[in-house]
Design a protein around this nucleic acid. Structure first.
Length: 490
RNA sequence: GGCGGCGUAGCCAAGUGGCUAAGGCAGUGGUCUGCAAAACCAUUAUUCAUCGGUUCGACUCCGAUCGCCGCCUCCA
């Protein structure tokens, strides 16, 4: 089976064929470091984290590069506002970014280059483009000549004529063609500057990715990724720069993920409708955010709402309850005299888990389908658990425990089910308990009183206690070994 | 205006032309229970925005229409 990936360049799903067999080289556009990250950034980081984990699970070696844009207009403006240097501002938000990434359990990429540490690599490419007649200096700026690259527009499906017709680009007297874009900006007083053959200045936005990807992954590599909003102009311009300078294809496969929306509108700083990662993580467990993110295919829009987060919570708790129940099975308890209670259909269903998971994920990383398979498996496991006799066959217990381990192993690719089931549920219980107006001692006392009442068949008082606790969002569960309680979400 | 995408049950969401249109949430009936809860079982789309076309066969391909969203300016 091969992994098929949707390629923005061709508009089709294509089989993954790394240029170097078995080794995938991946470059992802990272953040501009001037503010806290919102959940749109989280989706990007999570999507590529999942992709890298899946490729590694499928035995590919992966070299994963993700950059930091640490010099740019927004950084300069924000630094001025906050009365610090652009460098200080950038470093501060890189640190904050790592705080969020660590909380989300996202692995670090192999290489995380910063734009400001690769100025020479950028000026090299700019010089090459000038030598080839594909760029020109105008004043203290250097521009790319879009007309020199006949394939300009091939990624975004545009042509220069159409773009000029609907041009919203501000007129710049220096440019020969309004579509030409800046490679190097002459510096204004007070701005960070670097020396260059064209005078002091700083790089344009697009050139950093051309320069850093070439340095770390070569002139041609397998996958380049980012948000859909980067298709034009950012990635289109990268192609023009890199293919122009190198005279070789730049990237085989372009992966672009969809946006996080709120009430079906793109979450963005300019609309002011964004929620930061730390906003969300102060209310929800990181795995709940991950479960939510992966409930929709990565290319589709993902609409954030409290309801959707509640659904994700319910779903993840359901899976955790299942694996907690399996891990609490005691292998030594079985004395082996009973027969297997697992019928062939259920056995096959559980055995098919990993194969079905791979089939879903091979098809353009279909995590939504993969989650469906998890639920389907959990349902089967729960059914078997229900039918398990007091002294189950040890082989049955082993079979179930293996199924639980497989769920955890596959869940780890999406970054879920990483905790022990009982630990996750207990922690959650404690957190929810802290939010409501009752303590554990009181609950235990009432439960004990109710136990006595039930023994005396005093159902009136027994129900009264249950209702009283339910008012505080405490749900009771009477089992053969006594009464358990849990905190209900209000 | 140009380009791209989406429209599948009350809600969310898979579906790589052909086997019963996954799965989750919510709902309903049942098993269990003193009654509940959880879990399990059953049930919930003769139909995939609409209308045409291609095909032996279409949710899936093509065209048109309607609606929504995104990009074309910084953006994940």
């Amino acid at each position: 089976m091969t992994i098929r990936i949707y390629n923005t360049l061709s508009g089709k799903r294509e089989a993954l064929k790394p240029l170097e067999p078995g080794h995938v080289k991946l470059y992802v556009c990272g953040i501009t470091t001037y503010d806290y990250c919102h959940i749109g950034h989280a989706r990007s980081a999570l999507a590529f984290d999942m992709i890298v984990r899946y490729l590694r699970y499928r035995d590919y070696k992966v070299t994963y590069v993700r950059n930091f844009t640490d010099i740019d207009d927004k950084i300069i403006v924000r630094a001025k506002e906050q009365k610090c240097s652009p460098e200080e501002l950038a470093n501060r938000f890189i640190d904050e970014f790592y705080v969020d990434m660590d909380k989300l359990g996202i692995d670090r990429p192999d290489i995380e280059p910063k734009a400001t540490e690769h100025i020479t690599e950028m000026t090299d490419i700019i010089s090459e483009l000038i030598d080839k007649g594909m760029a020109y200096q105008a004043g203290n700026d250097v521009y790319y000549i879009v007309d020199s690259f006949p394939e300009y527009g091939k990624l975004s499906g545009r042509n220069l004529e159409d773009m000029k017709a609907g041009a919203r680009i501000s007129v710049n007297e220096q440019k020969r063609n309004p579509m030409d874009f800046v490679l190097w900006k002459g510096s204004k007083p007070g701005e960070p500057t670097w020396e260059s053959p064209w005078g002091p200045g700083r790089p344009g936005w697009h050139i950093e990715c051309s320069a850093m990807s070439r340095k770390y992954l070569g002139e041609t590599f397998d996958i380049h990724g980012g948000g859909k909003d980067l298709i034009f102009p950012h990635h289109e311009n990268e192609i023009a720069q890199s293919e122009g300078a190198n005279g070789k294809p730049f990237v085989t496969t372009w992966i672009h993920h969809g946006f996080v929306t709120i009430r079906d509108e793109k979450m963005s700083k300019s609309l002011g409708n964004f929620l930061t990662i730390r906003d969300i993580l102060s209310h929800y467990h990181p795995e709940i955010l991950r479960f939510f993110v992966f409930s929709t295919h990565y290319r589709n829009p993902l609409d954030f709402s409290e309801t959707a987060m509640q659904d994700a919570t319910t779903g993840l708790v359901r899976l955790y309850k299942c694996i907690a129940a399996v891990s609490s099975l005691n292998l030594a308890a079985g004395v082996g005299q009973s027969q297997s209670v697992i019928d062939d259909k259920d056995r096959l269903n559980i055995k098919a888990l990993e194969g079905r998971f791979q089939q879903a994920m091979d098809n353009d990383f279909n995590t939504a389908q993969a989650q469906g398979i998890f639920f389907d498996t959990a349902k089967t496991i729960n059914r078997i658990l229900k039918n398990l006799p007091a002294t189950p066959l040890p082989a049955d217990i082993t079979f179930l425990k293996d199924a639980g381990s497989t769920l955890k192993k596959l869940g780890d690719i999406m970054g879920i089910l990483r905790e022990e089931g009982t630990h996750f549920l207990d922690t959650r219980k404690q957190q929810m308990l802290a939010e409501i107006d009752i303590d554990e001692t009181t609950i235990d006392a009432l439960v004990a009183e109710r136990f006595q009442c039930r023994a005396e068949k005093n159902w009136a008082r027994s129900d009264e206690i249950r209702d009283q606790l339910l008012e505080k969002n405490i749900e009771l569960k009477d089992g053969p070994d006594g009464t358990e309680w849990s905190v209900k979400r209000s």
